[in-house]
Amino acid sequence: MFPPAFEYSAPTSVEEVLATLAAEGDGARVLAGGQSLIPMMKLRLASPAYLVDINNVSGLDYIEDVNGHVAIGALARHRDIVNSDVIASTNHAMASAAPWVADPIVRNRGTLCGSVAHCDPEGDWNSVMLAARAQVVAQSSTGERVIPIDDFIVDFFTNSLQPGEIVKEVRVPKYSGSGGGAYLKLERKIGDYATVAVASQIELDGDGKIAKAGIALTAVNNKNTRASAAEDALVGETPSDELFREAGDLASQAANPETNVRGTADWKREVVRVYTRRGLETALAQAQG
């Protein structure tokens, strides 16, 4: 398998990257980890005229605890998330998802920001970002804007970046109180995309009631989807088995999966139901931990 021809440059600063993107226009794409883009090029499903490789830009591989949120730079690899003490101590759903993204070698190269930008509905990170209510920092030669993840994810493989913009950073809010989360992924084998996955996150208030809830679903819609009704049902309530079952039921109603080689739609909705409940049980135990 051989990719089609393209022009290439590997600038060493963000400014140069943005200037090149602006100059090359629509045919240009950013190359970060490349673990989705390059296979698509080899299968000739993508044929960008110009690749702007950002791997030589220094200082973009950070995972930092900044006031109130964790900032993840454009070149932080999945492996960096797996190994990050900052992530381990601030966000359970991310820590739980990271080891199940792709396979160990792909994680050495692929980036979180690249996955977020890719908007593959079977991808893992955007569900976790939805549950955590993350923000995407988009930068272009004319400035920077901060996009809530809900607005960033537009559709099947479609984000809300404007021409000339790159995902420079993703910001994940930290728990304001005690919190917990989980990412439960049904995959067929290591390296597989999710057949179904559920990201869940809760924060408790001082009375032990649920102050914030995030639930998002992978691979059961045309994009990673927030299960809003399930979240709403949780907020303000005291956690219980019954409540979590109800959340599971509501989450499954937010799923609109296809029947395909991985399984039937009915079964996928059932997995959403079960995984939501189980994820919330894990999240609660952590929050109460």
Partner: peptide, 8 residues
């Protein structure tokens, strides 16, 4: 370790 089929 890197998969060199997925790097240029």
């Amino acid at each position: 370790p890197m998969k060199t089929c997925t790097m240029f």
